[in-house]
Write a protein that binds this DNA or RNA. Structure first.
Lengths: 368, 368
DNA sequence: TTGAAAGCGCTAACAA
DNA sequence: TTGTTAGCGCTTTCAA
């Protein structure tokens, strides 16, 4: 509206016939304690409002050597888990009086480095490194710049890490699907599908194995197929398993909702009765998965606590680098199963599923 | 590692026994054309690397009066549509050589104002205002600061707007569900559920009405219930409709995936055969909705084009403010229906659904 | 109660 | 080929 150039304190000072430092004090709220006259302040505020003044935070940041920004990198934004993390991060940042900047890196190490450097160049005051493929490399960069940072979701060794308890989450899911399958068959066999063999997937595989072992079931390496975080790959993996066995396995552990999407695409091609004979679990949560026509047991990550603990660790100074904090997941068991217990799954669940009360969420144990 | 204080060009200049401006030229890549010696440059780069120098973009931005930032506000991040927009925006921003800053406002007008002001204070070079509740108020703020901006998803009158073609998207979905329902019943009756009566929902209602009218069906105001963007409300709305009618309506148009979640929760309490007698459509898309055990027709918003066109409009100068650009949606029709045509839905779809080829996506018409 | 002045780190003439 | 210098807009002593 006014000029295209931005209004500065000098413009206002000139118009008010007063010095720039006085204007500055009024504009940043420090004028009371600088004992600037009530009317002077009012006048300046009026001019500022009429000219549409906005403070230049780059200048202020330069002067202060602090930006008021807090950064977060995530592999991608268009993902239920990471976007929830981002949302929780934003709210936390604001509560801390900081301005959140969230950027995605597409799981590309180069991109991660460039993004972290860029964020540091913008003088962020702290950094959350989420799902980084090279957390320690990034820690290096941050350390040189003296920037506080926390690894989230995937751990590193050079900074504190806050991650989900993948092991126990996977174990719990496995235990439930084992019970489901065991009620149908003497020695059921299970498959693990999806994910890349990073830290999280490896821990989940460990949990899966332990869940089977605890039930006295054998664990076959050939049944563990981390075919990637990709729906198409998961789909063809399950299709192949089905082709090989001539039917679905007795139980299936799907590692991530994105892989689950592919799995469901294949399952839809099968008669519903066959699908319901397979006990299915999924690491991570999607509300629509609860609403499918067959029951799925899920381990839901606790996004809010991941962020809360990260922010807490940012505050404290004296954390031994490399500390890993595990946040328990919530076990989500479909109503159909809850209602059918005890003796879970002793019958095929009814085609008319349970009333629409929310699914049961169990498991709160803190393993830190 | 080194000191906690950040390394500046002066530190490097001192260590190299050379002037700061030379260091600056080397650090920002302009040294070739400033004809700085190859070995000088090499030496400086070596020192910079060893000391972990990172350029201070606040200082550079202050000097240039430009920040290299581009901002976007969204109602929330943890939403499939908005997070996809954010992801597409990021990629576009980088392609433009700008650094993306995405912030959520939780559909709160105050928050929107504060956030836009904050972004302007950080000297963003352009702004995408997504789903703003008060686009024109925000335009005002931007205009005063001389900041280019575009309304996305919800239109305003003081800046160009790029939004989905809600009217035609809704009309197309309605037409398909009308055909489905008409094959079962002479004069089917339809309900519209979910959303708040903002511009988008109103246009979708118009499209819904037109879809019915085109088939010679009556349009009853009492059948249109924009019960909010909330799963629980949508659930109880549909439950009430069901209770009142003693059955599901012949067709149901659900306005948003979040409302759809609530609707499915209720539908799960019904026998599958009853659900399959209801022709169901949904504005907007979720991959898991495609995978439910009953067919759903969806209008999928074209996130990429929304962003592409927004960025294009940011470039050009001479756009009459208030121009609204409509981006067509893609009609997503489940395979079960595609395979059953012609005479869509003439029989109840088979319980074993179609093979896992991706659903058909039709509708590309550009209505600008 | 207010003003003058130095400087945050970087850039870009202009000098040398 | 390199150095000097004057700011970008703001904050903050110190002086008036």
């Amino acid at each position: 509206m006014t000029s295209s150039k931005k209004v500065t304190i000098y413009d206002i000072a000139k118009e008010a016939g007063i010095s720039a430092s006085t204007v500055a004090a009024v504009m940043n709220g420090s004028w009371r304690k600088r004992r600037i006259g009530e009317e002077t302040a009012k006048a300046i505020q009026a001019i500022a409002a009429s000219r549409g003044y906005t403070i230049n935070l780059q200048a202020r940041g330069l002067r202060h050597s602090r930006s008021g920004l807090i950064g977060m990198i995530v592999p991608m934004l268009d993902n239920r888990f990471f976007s929830s993390l981002a949302q929780a991060f934003e709210e936390k940042a604001r509560a801390l009086g900081l301005y959140p900047v969230v950027v995605s890196t597409l799981r590309d190490p180069q991109n991660e480095h460039a993004t972290v450097s860029a964020l540091i160049s913008h003088n962020v005051e702290a950094l959350l490194l989420t799902g980084a493929t090279d957390p320690d490399g990034l820690s290096e960069i941050c350390a040189r710049a003296g920037v506080r940072h926390i690894n989230v979701d995937l751990p590193g060794t050079k900074a504190p890490s806050v991650i989900s308890d993948n092991y126990n989450g996977a174990k719990e899911v496995t235990e439930v699907i084992v019970r489901m399958a065991s009620s149908r068959k003497e020695r059921p066999s299970f498959y693990f599908v999806g994910g890349v063999p990073d830290h999280n997937t490896l821990r989940r595989i460990d949990g899966f194995r332990e869940g089977l072992r605890g039930a006295g079931l054998p664990v076959l390496d050939s049944h563990i197929q981390p075919s990637g975080y990709d729906a198409d790959l998961a789909e063809s993996t399950v299709r192949e398993i089905h082709a090989r066995l001539g039917s679905l396995p007795d139980g299936l552990f799907v590692n991530s909702t994105i892989a689950f999407e592919g799995v469901v695409r294949f399952l839809k091609t099968l008669p519903i009765d066959e699908v319901r004979k397979c006990a299915i679990g999924c690491f991570d949560y999607d509300p629509f998965i609860e609403l499918l026509h067959f029951p799925v047991v899920m381990a839901r990550q606790n996004v809010k606590r991941l962020i809360d603990e990260s922010s807490r660790l940012l505050e404290v100074d004296n954390d031994p680098a490399g500390q890993v904090m595990l946040i328990p997941t919530d076990l989500v068991v479909p109503n159909a199963l809850v209602l059918a217990s005890p003796g879970m799954g002793s019958d095929d669940p009814p085609l008319i599923l349970a009333p629409s009360k929310p699914s049961k969420r169990i498991g709160r144990r803190k393993i830190a």
